[in-house]
Nucleic acid binder design. Structure first.
Length: 618
RNA sequence: GCGCCCGUAGCUCAGUGGAUAGAGCAGCUGCCUUCUAAGCAGACGGUCGUAGGUUCGAGUCCUACCGGGCGCACCA
């Protein structure tokens, strides 16, 4: 769960450097040493990795990889590199105090040619001090100025959110937060499904049934406009199928909607507004950043669709086929070996979603000046997006300077490995899943704190239940289908969101008790204090925060941050078990408090980036 | 048929070409007069789907096969 890397320089700006991690310092030092020993390979990756050997912090494997090219045994090469590292200018063995090495570390050769590095205790405390002194914990802003559009959540108006919407919403939210922290100019867009022929049918049904209650201020507590609309839509669908006369009126209503009939549009707007109101309640409950202002629905691009299609036809990219207008690309073939069409206009004259997606690409590049566009959409649409991006490139709407990515994620499966359903086989509603998690959390809270006031228990149960659901979703690798069992997810033991929250409350408890007594909460650690093993592991973990966040900004895989934070929380817990803080004598006590302050801030920052809360008490 | 994703402990999953493949859950043995036990320690548990190949070194890269999921013309 750890590496020295994430040092891509593609977007790094000069002068925007954070605190270099010790691993990074070793990487640079070994790189310099390679230049001295093997000038032809001066650009070789120093291959810095965390070491699993006792007493060793990091290792370089570069001697093993370069031995062949160097024409000498790897151990000999490693020895030469070690000599370079320990023979820095002006720091010879006779120079006096401290180790005679350019790095604040001991360097040795081991095994067939591993270069083992062990940092000095003073260097470790130095990293703690440097990160504590920076309000960004020493994390760089490698994405500074990168205008990034993140398209996520993408829920459908007049329908309830189901568990399938969870991943896009939660993963998208985490990416928005991570990229923003790394300096990107993030534009959130919720590509609402707010347009289509189905609304004509629904509106006609509502017109014919004015007694139906669905607006939020006419509904009983505990239900929502989208729940009501969902039901009314099913009724409308049934009427459409059973009653030809209604079907005819519904079709007329579709035409009225598309041609901008004022009364029909007003009805449509009310449906959209009521739906957004209901969605916002769920977003607020989930604690994601989306607001109604982030809505960028299909309807917004409606007027642009004819122009998009005309331009494709004019450029000869879209051609007629079976009555439709399609883009063919020999790179995408189907069952019969023939190219798979990207249908931009259907044979009935309506525009397909491909046209809408092309319009968004053109708009985001042209008007919003995006440098990077992310589509957090389930993996089944992979072919569709590849086709859309390819067509957009051909049309000149997607220059090579713009990075576009389909951030695909796997399906949500139940414990049986089949798409997640309720017990009776229906689609599982997101709000039901959240309720189940919170109910389960309430039981645990009550069990742990029998005397806690109800209001506090409710608040903590809500916080833990939601956090458990979100963490479970974020913690598994994105592309893979994601199997879960709500019972397991809300167990709150082991690698769960609650473990991270709990670790935070433990460190917060120490600081709460300590700070008033000492009054000097910002004192830097004393570098002369020996570092205990659990402290060493914790400091090294803390020092790696920036690398992980940077990596997530590039790989777009929040589960790496989850894994990191879990390791950090475990390192803190080990420290908590073996290193008493409040009862320790000075100067150990102050140093441990500094470590607690940095741990608390790092955990809190990491939790925030995942969209999870960092409470002081559970 | 073609394409994409995936096969790692009984279950759910991490694992970035490096030394002895790791967690959690379940089960087993212990630990609360101590900064919160939603925790910790220990033991148990593996032919990393199979077979080749590349490499000093492969769970990781390549090829083939086996098994599973998804996608492939007007739903989005």
């Amino acid at each position: 769960m750890w590496h020295a890397g994430g040092f891509s320089t593609s977007r790094r700006r000069p002068g925007m450097t954070g605190v270099a991690s010790l691993a990074r310092q070793v990487e640079q030092a070994v790189g310099t040493a390679i230049g001295a020993v093997l000038p032809a390979r001066r650009d070789a990756d120093p291959l810095i990795r965390r070491s699993d050997r006792p007493g060793v912090d990091v290792q370089s494997n570069v001697a093993l990889s370069l031995a062949g090219a160097a024409g000498r045994p790897p151990a000999q090469l490693a020895g030469q590199l070690a000599d370079q590292l320990t023979a820095a200018p002006g720091a010879g063995p006779a120079a006096g105090t401290g180790p005679a090495t350019a790095l604040p570390a001991a360097v040795s050769v081991a095994g067939p040619g591993f270069l083992n590095v062990t940092f000095t205790d003073a260097a470790l405390w130095g990293q703690v001090a440097a990160r504590l002194a920076d309000d960004r914990l020493g994390v760089d802003t490698p994405q500074a100025g990168v205008r990034t559009v993140v398209d996520y959540s993408s829920v459908n108006v007049a329908k309830q959110l189901h568990v399938g919407h969870l991943r896009s919403t939660v993963i998208g939210d985490a990416l928005v937060r991570v990229l923003g922290f790394l300096g990107a100019e993030v534009i959130r867009e919720n590509h609402l499904g707010d347009w289509g022929t189905q609304f004509g049918m629904l509106i006609q049904y509502l017109v014919e049934h004015p007694e139906a209650r669905w607006q939020h201020d006419r509904l009983a507590a505990g239900t929502t406009a989208v729940a009501a609309l969902d039901e009314l839509y099913r009724a409308a669908r049934a009427a459409f199928d059973a009653d030809p006369a209604f079907a005819g009126r519904a079709r007329k209503r579709v035409v009225a909607l598309q041609s901008g009939d004022p009364d029909t549009l007003a009805a449509w707007r009310e449906i959209v507004a009521e739906s957004q109101h209901a969605f916002q309640q769920v977003y607020d409950r989930l604690g994601v950043l989306l607001t109604e202002a982030d809505a960028a629905g299909e309807s917004r691009y409606n007027d642009a669709l004819p122009g998009v299609v005309d331009e494709l036809v004019r450029q000869g990219i879209a051609v007629p086929s079976a009555g439709a207008l399609c883009v063919f690309d020999p790179a995408f073939t189907g069952r019969d070996g023939a190219p798979v069409p990207l249908i931009v206009r259907k044979s009935d004259g309506g525009f397909g979603y491909a046209a809408t997606d092309l319009a968004t690409v053109r708009d985001r590049v042209g008007r919003e000046r995006a440098d990077r566009m992310l589509y957090v959409v389930d993996a089944r649409q992979a072919l569709h997006f590849r086709q859309v991006f390819a067509a957009a490139r051909r049309a000149g709407w997607l220059p090579g300077t713009v990075d576009v990515e389909h951030v695909a994620f796997g399906a949500v499966l139940g414990a049986d490995g089949r798409p997640y359903r309720t017990r009776d086989g229906g689609t599982a509603l997101l709000s039901d899943l959240l309720d189940a998690a919170v109910t389960s959390a309430r039981r645990v809270v009550r069990d742990k704190n029998p005397t806690m006031p109800d209001a506090d228990a409710d608040r903590i149960a809500e916080l833990c239940g939601i956090a458990a659901v979100k963490y479970a979703d974020l913690a598994t690798s994105r592309q893979q289908d994601y199997r879960f069992d709500p019972d397991r997810m809300v167990a709150f033991t082991g690698n769960t969101g609650v473990y991270l929250l709990y670790a935070h409350t433990r460190v917060a408890a120490i600081l709460r008790r300590a700070e008033p007594a000492t009054g000097d909460g910002d004192a830097p650690p004393d570098p002369a204090v020996p570092v205990a093993p659990a402290e060493r592991a914790l400091i090294l973990a803390l020092d790696g925060f920036g690398a992980v966040v940077t990596e997530v900004g590039e790989s777009l895989e929040p589960h790496r941050l989850c894994g990191y934070l879990y390791e950090l929380a475990r390192a803190f817990t080990a420290f908590y078990e073996s290193c008493p803080v409040l009862g320790a004598a000075e100067p150990v006590r102050s140093n441990r408090l500094a470590l607690c302050r940095l741990t608390r801030r790092t955990l809190a920052q990491g939790l925030t980036l995942l969209g999870l809360p960092a409470p002081d008490r559970l």
